[in-house]
Each structure stands twice: as structure tokens, then as C-alpha cells.
């Protein structure tokens, strides 16, 4: 069972970088047990990254109206097509559906871990204090999810 952690965001737009920051931190923690990709690309460009994996954890920033730093977690099936206020994950269900329709092996389970951002419209590097504080918690939660998947993998192929 192949596991991918995909961090999305833009490192020049303040808290929009949180997905990248969390993914990089997870790369250090998880070591070679899972693949980690942190990318500033979006939309269809993501298709090539996710092909061939069984489970996918997407980490991204979101503006959903809760307190900055709040963690949101959902399955990709919960995202209505092109209907969320998240500039990156919006295209994700479409990308996955397209890949499947074209016969590519797409991840059977896709979890999204989104961190409520405070500032994503300012061109500036660095997270706001609220997000800098939340990032380690997001790393912990992401690592829990991934460890759960690794345990599943070991049960199936002891």
C-alpha cells in the first residue's frame, strides 16, 4: 500500500504556505515510510503526482470562517465540486475523477487536513503567529493519520 502526503500552498502568500510547512515537517518525522510532496502547483498539474498511490493525505490552507489555526478534516467526497472557498483543493475532486475516468490508478482513500488561515491575500513570506502556533498541531494530527495507515499496511502485509 503506497501512501502520499501532498502539501499545497503558495509560500509567498503568508498563511497559504501552511500546507507546505506542515508537509515538510512531516517529511522529517515520517522518514522513508511515506512519500511527501510539497508543491505550489494546483489544479490539473496535481494529477501526475497522485497517480499510483493507494492513500492520499492532502494538507492545505482553508478559509472557512472559523478561528485562525482551527484544524478541519474531511474526506474528499465531502468537497462539492468547485464549491469551496479553498483555492487549491477545489479542483482536487475533479482531478481525481478525471484520473479515474481515464483509467489511471487513483488513491482509494483521500483525506484532507485543512488549517484555517488568517491572511492569504498579502504577498509576504512567513506564517502569521496564529498559524505558526497551529502548524505543529497539524503536523501531529497528520502524523496520526499517516501512522494509522501504516498500521493498516502492516496488518495486511505483516
Amino acid at each position: 500500500m503506497r501512501i502520499l502526503v501532498l502539501g499545497l500552498g503558495n509560500s509567498l502568500l503568508r498563511d497559504d504556505a501552511v500546507g507546505l510547512v506542515v508537509a515538510e515537517a512531516l517529511r522529517d518525522r515520517a522518514g522513508p515510510s511515506v512519500d511527501v510532496i510539497a508543491t505550489e502547483e494546483s489544479g490539473l498539474s496535481l494529477l501526475d503526482y497522485v497517480v499510483g498511490y493507494d492513500r492520499l493525505l492532502v494538507i492545505d490552507a482553508v478559509k472557512a470562517g472559523s478561528a485562525p489555526g482551527t484544524l478541519h478534516e474531511f474526506d474528499v467526497g465531502d468537497i462539492r465540486w468547485a464549491s469551496t472557498a479553498n483555492p487549491h483543493a477545489t479542483g482536487l475532486p475533479e482531478v481525481l475523477a478525471l484520473g479515474s475516468a481515464l483509467g489511471s490508478k487513483m488513491p482509494g482513500e483521500v483525506r484532507v487536513l485543512a488549517v484555517e488561515a488568517q491572511e492569504i491575500y498579502e504577498i509576504k513570506e512567513g506564517l502569521t503567529p496564529a498559524l505558526a502556533a497551529a502548524a505543529p498541531l497539524a503536523v501531529d494530527r497528520a502524523w496520526e493519520i499517516v501512522q494509522g495507515w501504516i498500521a493498516d499496511r502492516q496488518e495486511r502485509h505483516p
Binding site: 502568500l13 489544479g43 468547485a82 464549491s83 472557498a85 483555492p87 487549491h88 477545489t90 492569504i120 504577498i123
Partner: peptide
């Protein structure tokens, strides 16, 4: 705007003369 990368959704808001929102359509 100088603006956001990625694909994002659209919203149509319909307002009356006073600026009150009478309908909002999200996709």
C-alpha cells in the same frame, strides 16, 4: 488583483436597490 493561484469557485449575489441581498448562488 495581483491574486490567488489555483482554481476557486464563483458566487453570484443579487441585491435590491437598498443593497439587501435577496439571493445568493454558490456553485
Amino acid at each position: 488583483t495581483h491574486a490567488l493561484p489555483g482554481q476557486a469557485p464563483v458566487v453570484v449575489t443579487i441585491r435590491d436597490r437598498t443593497g439587501r441581498v435577496i439571493q445568493e448562488i454558490r456553485r
